[in-house]
Design a protein around this nucleic acid. Sequence first.
DNA 1: GGCGACGAGTGAATTGTTTCAATGAAATTG
DNA 2: CAATTTCATTGAAACAATTCACTCGTCGCC
Lengths: 343, 343
Amino acid sequence: MIVIKDVARRAGVSVGTVSNVINSPERVGEDTRRRVEAAIAELGYVRNVHARQLRVGHSRILGLLVLDMGNPFFVDVARAAERAAHRAGLGVMVCTSNQSASEEEEYLALFAEQRVRGVLLTPADGSGRTVEAFGRHGIPFVLVDRVGAGGAGCSVSVDDVAGGTLAVGHLTAAGHRRIAYVSGPPHLQQIRDRRAGALAALAEAGIGAEALIELPTETLDVAAGRDAASRLLGLSQRPTAVFCANDLIALGVLQTLFAAGVGVPQDMAIVGYDDIEFAAAAAVPLTSVRQPAAAMGRLAAELLLEELAGESGAHEHRQVVLQPELVVRRSSLVRRGANGGPL
Amino acid sequence: MIVIKDVARRAGVSVGTVSNVINSPERVGEDTRRRVEAAIAELGYVRNVHARQLRVGHSRILGLLVLDMGNPFFVDVARAAERAAHRAGLGVMVCTSNQSASEEEEYLALFAEQRVRGVLLTPADGSGRTVEAFGRHGIPFVLVDRVGAGGAGCSVSVDDVAGGTLAVGHLTAAGHRRIAYVSGPPHLQQIRDRRAGALAALAEAGIGAEALIELPTETLDVAAGRDAASRLLGLSQRPTAVFCANDLIALGVLQTLFAAGVGVPQDMAIVGYDDIEFAAAAAVPLTSVRQPAAAMGRLAAELLLEELAGESGAHEHRQVVLQPELVVRRSSLVRRGANGGPL
DNA sequence: GGCGACGAGTGAATTGTTTCAATGAAATTG
DNA sequence: CAATTTCATTGAAACAATTCACTCGTCGCC
C-alpha cells in the first residue's frame, strides 16, 4: 500500500509538504505542487482517513439511523439528508434499526466507535433511554420524525396528532361512525400521537372513543397490513373505514380486502399515512396524510450542520415541527349519506 | 474524551492489559478482567476504531454501492447483503450512485479512503473504467447485478437476456405484434441485455426487429415512466403492448395511460421488470419479470466474505448467474386473437 | 533446592497522517 | 547594506489503539 512517505520520496519533498499539497495547496509553491500531484497520480496514492481522523479528532461522516429503509418514506428522508450533507462535504452512513431498540443501540455504538461527526436518528426506543445514553458521548445529534425530549438536541418532526385528526376527521365528515386503526407497534411515539389525533377527531364529531377499533401490528410493512385486514374481516361488527398508520400497511389492507371481494371505498374506506409515491399508483388510489419527507431530511441535516459549524455554545437547540397535509384520492371517496347521521 | 490510558489508570493496569481485556479476554486473569470491565463501564469508554484500524491495517466495514435506493429492488438487495455481513460481524456502508459514473467514482474513492474491507457494487459506468480503476487499490469487490468482465472479481447477476425474452415472448404469444420498450439509460448493461432478449423473442416468433419501438429515458423511476407514456401516446402507429425496463417505470406508464383513458390490458398490455412488492398492489396488478433480489444480495455478500476469509490465493473468482421468472398478472392478460395472426 | 515452565501483566514500538515551531532563502524596507 | 518581512519547506511530535518481546512470580518436579 502506498503511503504519504512514498509520495514524498518520489517527489523529492518532505511528508509535511505532501500533506500541505493535499490540505492547503495555496501554501505550496507552484512547481513543487505540480511535482507532488504528479507523484500522487503516478503512485495511485489514496490517503488513509483513519490516520487523518486520529490526528484531527473527528471524521467527515454523519450517521443516519432510520426505522426501515424498506419504507419509501424513510428513503426520501435519507436521500434529502444525504444531499444536504454532501453539499457540505460530508459523507453519510445510512443504517436501519428495524424498529428494534437493541439494533438501535448496536448501531449507535457503531457510530460512537467510528467517531462520526454527528448523528441523525429516528428513535425506535420509545423510552428514549438509548438516545439518552448516546448523548453522553458528546456527539451532536438531531432527532428525525420525533420531537426532542428535554431539549438535549434539535429535532425535526411532523405533527402526528394533527395528522391523525386530519385522517379521521375526513372519515367522520364522510359519515363513518366505526373506524378501525391499524396501528403498528405501540411503542412508537408516532403511532401513539396519531391515535391521539384520531380520538380528538372523533370527540370533535361527537363520537365516543369506542368507535375506534384498534388493530395493532408487530411491524409497519405490507405483510402486516394483509394480516390486519384478515383480522378486520373477522370482526363481528365490521367498521366502514380503516385508518392505517402508514401507506405500506394501507396497501396490504387494500390487497386483502380486494381479494376478499370487499369494495373500496363503497364497503370500506381507507386512509393511509406518509403519501409515498406508490400510494397514488395503487389498485385504488390511496387517500393519505402527506408528510414532507424530503424537507424533514434536509432540515435535519441542516440543523446538524449548523450545530457542527457554530463555535461551541453559539448553537441553540431547536424543535422544528412541520405540518402534514391530507391528500384525498379514491380510496375514501365520500359515501352516500355523508354528513348525515348513522348509516 | 476517554481513551484507553484513562481506563488503564483507573483500573490500575497497563494499557496493554486493557487492550487484552477487549480483544482477547481469555489471556487476562479473572479479577483484573473484572476490574478493567468495571473501569470501562464507569468511564463510558468507547474504543476509537480509527486508531485500531491504523494499527491492524483494515476496517470491519463493507462498502455497498447501488444504482438507486429509491428502487425497492435495490433496497431488497441491500438488506439481504447487510444481514449476511452482519452475521459475520461486519458493518455495511450503503451508498447510491444515481446511475452516474461520476458519483460512482466519488463513492469508490470514499471507500478506498476508508480502507473498507471489501466492496459490493452495481456499476453505473457501462465501460467498466471506474471499476477497473478501483481494482488497483487491491480492495476485494463483488459485482452485483452485472457479470464480471475479465474475471477480475466475483459477480452475482441475473440473466437479463433471458428476462427480456421471457417478457416479450409472453407478449408475442398473446398476439402482440408492435411492442414498445421503455428502456431507461442505454449505458447500463442490464438495459442492453434486456433489449437483446426482447429481440430474440421477436425473432423466435418470426417478427422483425422493427416491431420493437424503443423509448429511452434518462432515469429509471416513476416520473420517467410517466414521461415515456406521454411520448408513447403521441406515436402515429401506437403499439399494443409495453415492456418496461423496471417496475417503477411500468407504474409511471400505467398512471399516465390510466389518466389518458387507455385501458390496461385491453388497449395496452404492460410488462414490468423486478417484481417489486408494489407491482402486485398497482391499480392494475403488474405482470413482471421477477429477480431474486434478496438471494443476489446475500450471495454477493457471501462471496465477498469467502474471499476475505480465504488465505491469500485460496479463493477462486466465480460468476454466479441466477435465473429470472415471469410473474403473470392482470396487466398483460391474454387478449382476444391470442396465438393468432396480426390483429 | 534448583530448574524449567507457565501464566499474567508490562511497556515500548508501530501504524499514517496532520500540525507547528523552526529554518533558510529571497524579497522588501529604511 | 543591514534589518526585517515574507514565503516555502522541513522534521518531529502527537493522535489512540494493537502487538510482542520481556519480566516477574509461582508452581511443580526431580
